[in-house]
Design a protein around this nucleic acid. Sequence first.
DNA 1: ACTGGCACTCCTCACGCCGGAGTGCCAACA
DNA 2: TGTTGGCACTCCGGCGTGAGGAGTGCCAGT
Lengths: 338, 338
Amino acid sequence: MLEDRRLAVLRAIVEDYVSTREPVGSKALVDRHSLGVSPATVRNDMAALEEDGFIAQPHTSAGRVPTDKGYRLFVDKLASLRPLSTAEKRAISTFLEGAVDVDDVVQRSVRILAQLTRQVAIVQYPSLTRSTVRHVELVTLAPSRLLLVLITSSGRVEQRVIEPPVPVGDAFVADLRARLNTATLGRRLADAAQRISELAETFPLTDRPVVSVVVTALVEAFSDERSDERVAIGGTANLMRFGDDFDSSIRPVLEALEEHVVLLKLLGEATSPSALTVRIGHEVPYDELSTTSVVATGYGMEESLAALGVMGPTRMDYPGTMAAVRAVARYVSRTLNA
Amino acid sequence: MLEDRRLAVLRAIVEDYVSTREPVGSKALVDRHSLGVSPATVRNDMAALEEDGFIAQPHTSAGRVPTDKGYRLFVDKLASLRPLSTAEKRAISTFLEGAVDVDDVVQRSVRILAQLTRQVAIVQYPSLTRSTVRHVELVTLAPSRLLLVLITSSGRVEQRVIEPPVPVGDAFVADLRARLNTATLGRRLADAAQRISELAETFPLTDRPVVSVVVTALVEAFSDERSDERVAIGGTANLMRFGDDFDSSIRPVLEALEEHVVLLKLLGEATSPSALTVRIGHEVPYDELSTTSVVATGYGMEESLAALGVMGPTRMDYPGTMAAVRAVARYVSRTLNA
DNA sequence: ACTGGCACTCCTCACGCCGGAGTGCCAACA
DNA sequence: TGTTGGCACTCCGGCGTGAGGAGTGCCAGT
């Protein structure tokens, strides 16, 4: 009972602080929430919460502000995901359905996510590594110039221009193409790379040099992780709403946004599509971002798996943000799968 | 002589204001520049310049600040492009040479441009419309599922998945592929679109429905201007250096950066690779951006033409910025052409 | 045409004051 | 034991005042 009320007080503090952006005092708290007790009682609870490190006061005799630990408890124990309105769901759904290819899906996702959460949104491009080979195409552009095209089940297309050491005939190319396809079709990329490396050895020695360059290029395309490293960003203008101190709060975020490696690390741990990862303040693995939180999750099916999320001030609307991130991830997964 | 000195005073005011960010007074001017006259004389000149609308004072008895008109005169008449150091040239050159494909060139350009100018850099992806068809590939993914891949001379690849109304055989696909290629190879995209529209009519009536969807998709890919509309952005963190008012100065820029259409319009007029376009303050076609300037230019050869530039406060280092923009454009053109 | 001097304007910053919100503590009460 | 009202205390933040300084415009002198 006593514990219960303290948690209720913490919840109220978090909610008020998130919406007002100002330290919240005992009086204001009982006014705005029906806690059924007097301010004096609340003060006692606050003192206890502060003792335990869940809240803090910026200055003596100012209102209380949640600490990172306080937000953590709030997220873990107190927050129920606020379900999105059907209008919002519809918006996500129809907006994503308009996408014409994978890139477009990613770009639309980042927009809708930024719009829903009113934070900075980050979406990682789907990874190739878990997807499978849908088709390998080998085209003669010129006698000693081949075009290699790899199409994956995730809908991504990688291409390479290859210049074999000696000119090759059409028949040879056709044969090679057929063999490459039978060896790799439907396999996972890492698996397929293995297969074609073996495949090279079944060719007569005279053809080896040509086969070798093709295989090398293809293996490179398989393991090409550039698309893993790509991210789309949106909602930068929402940084304005931080309203916080310029230098200590916004600059690091803008700088992080330029460093895609950093963003990937922030999204990094969130690989599972089922779980939401929430990093609050100092839990974020960069000191400069210690006043920001990251809410992320994985999306996609096994064959094209990546992460998306948002970045914002620790003082953010966790229930709403978490719900939005989860919802967008689900719809994106569904869209990609269709 | 008298006119000459007034212009010298204007130049000095612009330079000082750009570097100090503070209104500049007559005393400070004669101290920092060897004008050979007394502050009182300078004051007279200033009064005349203000009369003509080239400078203004924020408050009575404060220093003078250049107006948009003043900056305009400065860039038109007074500014000599400050040549880049050889170290900077080397940096641009080697950095761009490391690029592996067109996308990479664009992304590297935007980085180097942001770094050199310390402003927000914008680079439009090269346009397809002037490039030629290098190869059209048609692949059977499933009996009634085709993949269409278009490779252009600019190195860009567009792909579409097509679902023909009836299943098609491999022989038919091969024939269609051959015909598409002979009809379009080496032609400009707009031209090629024309050809294949005609091509459709040479097929027997029974095949028309299938041919039709393929042709439609290909024409769409030809005329697809999405790549025209794509832009890369960098140096957002440089916004911090504005140091100006948050809301009136930075917010509109951040918002513009989200609206790629706006950015394209800003770059829009700059299509010629030879000329620099400088829009100062109110000359920028958006009211919200009336405290920012845009320096842009075209880049690339005829077959892949686009624009790049930077965006910053009107109070920017025009000589340096213009030189950097021009230099990067040249190096990018050279890199793309190689 | 340029210069030095001078009175005037007006911004900026520092200081000090005061009000108000909030706290902690205590004594009283259920 | 937990809750409540009262009370003295703290300290932030806004505001008016005043001194200082940078800059201007004007005028008379060269």
